[in-house]
């Protein structure tokens, strides 16, 4: 197997994830897209781990999974909070960051 095939798969997933983050309005969908990005990163880590014959990539992939779990937990809690306060989770209606 080629190294590049895994890396390219990661790249495809990453770009799809980026598209999702940018294009989606629903906060839950944005979180899902972020999961896609994180998975593409994991794929890269494991591919390089396998290529270099080093265990470190596996370790970091596990850490990424754990961080992703924490991120989803907090992210969804925030979504719930926003929904409760505003009755919507459409991100483009949240314009408090308007400069």
């Amino acid at each position: 197997m080629l190294t590049v095939q895994f890396l390219l798969l990661g790249a495809v997933l990453f770009c799809i994830g980026v598209y999702g983050v940018l294009a989606r309005k629903n906060a839950v969908m944005v979180l899902m897209s972020i999961e896609l990005i994180l998975n593409s990163v994991n794929l890269n880590l494991l591919a390089f781990s396998s290529r270099l014959g080093s265990i470190d990539g596996n370790t970091f992939a596990l850490y990424v999974i754990a961080v992703a779990a924490a991120e989803v937990g907090v992210g969804l809690a925030m979504v719930l909070l926003i929904y409760r306060n505003r009755r919507t989770i459409a991100l483009d209606e949240l314009s408090d960051m308007k400069g």
Partner: peptide, 14 residues
């Protein structure tokens, strides 16, 4: 894919 990369534990965790 992780299994293909022989990272069983990460696959199971995934």
């Amino acid at each position: 894919q992780y299994l293909l990369l022989s990272a069983e534990f990460v696959a199971i965790t995934q």
